[in-house]
Computed example of a mutant assay.
Amino acid sequence: MKIAIIGASGYAGGELIRLLVHHSTADVVCATSRKLAGTPLDQVHPQLKGFTSLNFENPEIDAIDADVAFLAVPHTAAMTYAGKLLSRGIKVVDLSADYRLPKEIYEKAYGVPHTDYFPAPYGIPEIHRKDCIGAKFVSNPGCFPTGATLAAAPLARYAHTVIYDSKTGVSGAGDNPSATTHYPNVGDNIGPYKLTSHRHLAEMKQELSHLGSAAKCYFTPHLVPVNRGILTTAHILLNEPMDQKDVENLYRDYYKDEYFVRFQKPSLAAVRGSNFCDIMVESEGSRVVAVSAIDNLVKGASGQAIQNMNLMCGLKEQDGLMHPGMLP
């Protein structure tokens, strides 16, 4: 199965290649970068030396020959690729934000017009598996909404308010240096940002609604001095009190068939490099605290994208993703 990665020079592109090395049928045949065309991949992704002999290339869209294309490009860029690739019979997984939201909500959240909108399954497989199976196109969710939604999903329809507080690693900002990610500003520090206006809030609200919840939803992220991972604390305020045993049973039953969701104390180190989401819950009656941990580059991006590709292509869902976390 021939794979093209559009925008392969960033962290998500590197993770896609790292994970697909272990896939039973996927073969990355095209890795694009406008700026780095002709450069060997392993000069940018040294962790891949010995695993790939590809060079970056910058082909025209009509020249891309693949069965599946991953769009690891910024928002607004994906909409220039998706429709054209699909029209040529190439299945597409979009890691950008361009197709995660209805057109009018996207344009409001991102402040740009959408020039090639069409609806797409929202690819959290644990919530939307039926929509992803056999699909030609899937929109991969944001990293924050993945961890947050999985933390709250079993209780969503019982809640009147959900408050998400997330701690995220620096790789979530991408590989372009900035004052925000400069080591002296990040190391030995913690900082909240976009306290009430993060773009991913729209996805979180959308998913609560999909889960049958009319709950109010709030979200504040914090940058912490780690490379990878998102630890999300969800404060779930219930319409009626629920004791600890009932909450635990609800979560265990909800995720009993989900290989990539583990019911245990969350730790960023335990999920680092893996596609797992670890969750724990504690009830005080009318408030339940649910905590989740994911690797923002794997379950929050490239790993979940491969999970979606497997569903789209009728493959084993865990193919290419059988990696435990890297503790310590």
Rank of each mutant, 00 (worst) to 15 (best):
residue 22 H to R: 04
residue 195 L to E: 02
residue 166 S to A: 15
residue 193 Y to N: 04
residue 71 L to A: 01
residue 43 Q to D: 12
residue 77 A to M: 10
residue 324 P to L: 09
residue 130 K to A: 15
residue 90 I to N: 01
residue 154 P to T: 00
residue 164 Y to W: 10
residue 262 R to W: 03
residue 162 V to K: 02
residue 7 G to C: 07
residue 266 P to F: 03
residue 326 M to P: 00
residue 32 T to R: 04
residue 20 L to I: 09
residue 300 G to C: 01
residue 145 P to Y: 13
residue 318 Q to T: 15
residue 111 G to M: 06
residue 281 V to Q: 11
residue 173 A to L: 09
residue 31 A to S: 04
residue 186 V to H: 06
residue 213 S to I: 06
residue 94 D to K: 00
residue 56 F to R: 01
residue 288 V to Y: 06
residue 152 A to K: 10
residue 122 Y to K: 01
residue 315 L to T: 01
residue 160 H to E: 08
residue 212 G to N: 10
residue 20 L to P: 05
residue 185 N to R: 00
residue 273 G to C: 07
residue 204 M to F: 09
residue 1 M to P: 12
residue 14 G to L: 11
residue 255 Y to F: 15
residue 180 T to W: 15
residue 212 G to W: 00
residue 48 L to Y: 11
residue 189 N to G: 06
residue 157 R to Q: 13
residue 276 F to V: 06
residue 108 K to T: 12
residue 226 V to R: 05
residue 281 V to D: 05
residue 165 D to A: 10
residue 77 A to K: 08
residue 291 V to R: 15
residue 224 V to N: 03
residue 131 D to M: 15
residue 319 D to A: 07
residue 40 P to F: 07
residue 240 E to H: 12
residue 250 L to Y: 01
residue 22 H to K: 05
residue 218 Y to H: 14
residue 184 P to Y: 08
residue 30 C to I: 15
residue 256 K to T: 03
residue 167 K to R: 14
residue 240 E to I: 00
residue 289 V to R: 08
residue 96 S to R: 10
residue 200 H to C: 13
residue 328 P to M: 14
residue 86 L to R: 13
residue 6 I to M: 04
residue 50 G to C: 02
residue 31 A to N: 03
residue 319 D to K: 10
residue 8 A to V: 05
residue 103 K to P: 05
residue 152 A to C: 07
residue 232 T to E: 05
residue 214 A to L: 14
residue 14 G to V: 09
residue 35 K to C: 08
residue 233 T to Q: 13
residue 100 R to Y: 01
residue 114 H to L: 08
residue 136 K to A: 14
residue 159 A to T: 02
residue 50 G to D: 07
residue 137 F to P: 01
residue 289 V to I: 15
residue 179 A to S: 12
residue 200 H to W: 13
residue 30 C to M: 11
residue 202 A to M: 07
residue 100 R to Q: 05
residue 99 Y to G: 00
residue 202 A to I: 09
residue 117 Y to I: 02
residue 69 A to W: 02
residue 192 P to H: 08
residue 299 K to T: 10
residue 25 T to R: 12
residue 217 C to Q: 04
residue 143 C to R: 15
residue 13 G to Q: 08
residue 152 A to L: 02
residue 32 T to C: 13
residue 83 G to D: 15
residue 5 I to S: 05
residue 259 Y to W: 14
residue 175 D to S: 13
residue 229 G to C: 12
residue 13 G to F: 11
residue 294 I to E: 14
residue 172 G to I: 14
residue 26 A to I: 01
residue 197 S to T: 11
residue 299 K to H: 11
residue 45 H to Y: 09
residue 155 L to T: 02
residue 261 V to G: 03
residue 250 L to P: 00
residue 287 R to M: 14
residue 174 G to Q: 12
residue 298 V to P: 00
residue 210 H to Q: 11
residue 227 N to Q: 11
residue 201 L to C: 11
residue 139 S to Y: 01
